[in-house]
């Protein structure tokens, strides 16, 4: 088997004196689909944001694509190009049309020609099923559409791994499924994914590993069937009890 795409070894992080992450160890191999869940404030967003170094860690080692992430690194932009990230609040560029949002990355940092970038952009807009919105501005789209554009924007960079930071938490309930459908398709296409999400249906359908975090630590890591049917830890049981109640 080849090198893992992402390796976290003994990673800890502090905000001032508050310890946000404690001794995190895990790895992501090519084709893995990992769901990270846990109660609010458990450090799951912080953890996923350290993977492309939007947050710095203080202890341990993070290796992405064979490159160690640390504060003296010169090529952080190189590493980030290969990691797609989808945010809770979409973070599309509001002054650019949907198409321009999608073409910006490939043209500006990958050096791809405009024609080719446009073709790629339209291909991915087709895949997220909103090609007709290409010339609109993000502000004219619904939340669900915006998030699908954000996913397409990341895909245009042809990333090796996609990170999702609670992609459906800011959406109206009726728009959650259109985004999840897109993510399921992506997973079926073989994309390597790490998703922070509370969508347990998605986890059951797609994940090949579920990670449960609490208080900055990984409490439990297992395949989805044993995670949901036979959780080992008390905290996992509590959490699942709370979110599966309804």
């Amino acid at each position: 088997m080849s090198e893992p795409i992402i390796q976290m070894i003994g990673v800890s992080k502090w905000y001032g004196t508050f310890k946000a992450l404690t001794n995190i160890n895990f790895e992501v191999n090519e084709g893995d689909r990992i769901v990270v869940c846990g109660p609010s404030g458990s450090g799951k967003s912080t953890m996923i944001r350290t993977l492309n170094w939007l947050e710095a860690h203080q202890e341990g080692t993070i290796i992405v694509n064979g490159i160690e992430m640390h504060e003296k690194m010169q090529n952080v932009d190189q590493v980030r190009m290969d990691i797609g990230m989808v945010f809770q609040h979409f973070n599309l560029f509001p002054h650019m049309t949907v198409l321009q949002n999608l073409m910006a990355g490939p043209m500006w940092v990958r050096g791809i020609k405009e024609e080719e970038a446009r073709k790629t952009a339209m291909k991915f807009l087709d895949r997220v099923r909103i090609p007709e919105q290409a010339d609109k501005y993000p502000g004219q789209l619904s939340g669900g559409q915006q998030q699908r554009v954000a996913i397409a924007r990341s895909l245009c960079m042809s990333p090796k791994v996609m990170l999702f930071d609670e992609p459906t938490s800011a959406l109206d309930p009726e728009m959650v499924s259109e985004v999840l459908d897109t993510m399921v398709e992506l997973a079926k296409g073989g994309m390597t994914m790490v998703c922070v999400t509370h969508e347990m249906g998605f986890a059951k359908a797609v994940a090949d590993r579920v990670i449960f975090m609490d208080e900055g630590q990984i409490v439990e890591e297992s395949d989805p069937i044993s995670f949901f049917d036979n959780p080992q830890h008390e905290r996992t049981k509590n959490f699942l009890g709370q979110i599966l109640q309804h």
Binding site: N52, L54, D77, Q78, V79, R80, M81, I83, M85, F87, H89, N91, L92, F93, A104, G105, W108, V109, R153, S154, M157
Partner: peptide, 11 residues
């Protein structure tokens, strides 16, 4: 978020 989105794309 605009900074984060931009930097996360390698800009």
């Amino acid at each position: 978020g605009q900074w984060e989105a931009s930097r996360s794309m390698g800009f």
